[in-house]
Write a protein that binds this DNA or RNA. Sequence first.
RNA 1: GCUCUCGUAGCUCAGGGGAUAGAGCAUUGGCCUCCGAAGCCAUGAGCGCAGGUUCGAAUCCUGCCGAGAGCGCCA
Length: 575
Amino acid sequence: MADPILFLNAALQAAYDHFEPGADPVTRPSDRADYQSNGILPLAKRLGRNPRDVAAELIGHLDLANVAEVEIAGPGFLNITLADPVVSQLVTRLATDARLGVRTAANPETAVVDYSAPNVAKEMHVGHLRSTIIGDAIVRLLEFVGHTVVRENHVGDWGLSYGMLIEHLVDMQQTAGVEDLSIGDLGDFYKAARVKFDATDEFKERSRNRVVSLQSGDVETLRLWDILVSQSAAYFQEVYDKLGVLLTPKDIVGESFYNPLLNDVVDDLKAADLLVLDDGAWCAFPPGYVGREGNPQPLIVKNRNGGFGYAATDLATVRDRVDRLNATWLIYVVGAPQAVHLAMCWKVAEMAGWLQPPARAVHVPFGSVLGSDRKMYRTRAGESIRLVDLLDEAVSRANAELDKRTNDIVGDERVAVARSVGLGAVKYADLSNDRVKDYVFDWDRMLAFEGNTAPYLQYACARIASILRRAGDEAADLAGTAINVDAPQERALAMSLLAFDAAVHDTIDKLGPHRLCTYLFDLAQTFTSFYDACPVMKDDVPTDVRRSRLTLCELTLRVLSTGLGLLGISVPERM
RNA sequence: GCUCUCGUAGCUCAGGGGAUAGAGCAUUGGCCUCCGAAGCCAUGAGCGCAGGUUCGAAUCCUGCCGAGAGCGCCA
């Protein structure tokens, strides 16, 4: 019971039970006191009594042994300040907890997280950044609290454009006259194919035929297709490794994987009488969706040419994840523009009985990355920015920032620090905003060493690490040290550390990584205030105070680095 | 035309029924004989507009204004 809210609620429960057995105490952190009890007014209403009288009587039934102060505030609150010894005791216990007070999930379940999803034979650009980073953080968070997580990288590897790309590959083979095919630069490859496709009817015709061959399982076509897929997968992995996310080639479950399931999807929907033939296309019309002209909005499952739309694939993902993977929590980390499409798919899946409680699908939408002109972030030439270029620039810019601050870190360590700071800056800038909103990509702001940035947090960690190095052997021998919270800054730090559990679970409830960012930044600020006011390794600090403060430092470092780790951000020892 | 998302300080953003709405940048002024000043302390200014629900609204509901996005055969 490291979480003081649980601790308080247990204490309050007895008092509430006096009035109404089972009434839920509602407690939340407050800046007026440590915590605020918030459920008195509804309770008084149910009892038909004066709230102030109820509050007064409630205090009378509250066990005050662990509480320094309780006061009635406003029409229906109690402000509660925990006694210092209790705070000391809780944080001392926290320091020996390997999980840093974070509870495991009450109901562990199997979650599928669908994220990243680049397209085969196409360059990865900034657009893939958010899905990849946000998805990565969600995966780490869910695993941390004990859920079983299946990562799925739903790459685009099937559909009309692959006829075009395969034909382009064939052309390249003929000009180059080589057996060992390489698609080389993905951006150029795709663009060249596209240009040919738009320019010549002959190529267009070949591309269409090639799609037919692909879908009918022609061996040679599949061989060529596989070249595109495998080389792209290798390229994606380079980017993921550079970015430092958990995705591996095994996580690729592309559109082609679902292709064999699509006939059943359509047949079963037809059998369930959920599809109607409309203008030659098989459509579902889930209730409540209206499009242009006020007509019901269709979800086109099979087009008039007999081809499957992506609605069919998305329906298949629901079915497959529920049936084959036994997942109950389907998380789609997909851009906000897809919101209506996904909602329609899930509505149809529900009506077909494929998506039933406890299984449910959740959209984790996110906004766009904008440039300083508040339009989609692009190069000056108007092209989308390659993700690899962006990551390389982040590292070199971080390196330049480190140069400004005369430091003696060189060689491999220097390379690692620049990488940690550069990537951390990019990730943190993305994750620290509420994901549904667009955000402006600004190198200077994200790489600033002051403010709500990764470098600030990493710097705070580096200072703590520095103190621990200074403490030498003593830092390794702190187990069981009693922590005192005499100074207000010590107490504030302890309270912040105790809130880690709540921050992690709140972040998971909302699937909003920025909540964890806000917490970590607050903790880092609280720490630096402590650092400024409370000397640790100075000569005139008594031994017991030094050891208590060292333990606070060590615990803070663990919370910060664990928290940043959950966001996919690493913490250098020095910087 | 219909639908969805978003409008909070000069700027970038938190807060999403609870008291006097918080940070960071930028501004101004203090702190290094002292553990890393990449820091700390202090400083002014704000909920798009109008109604409604409520003891209480930045938060929920409705309308309007503004920005972005989506709406039948691409994914």
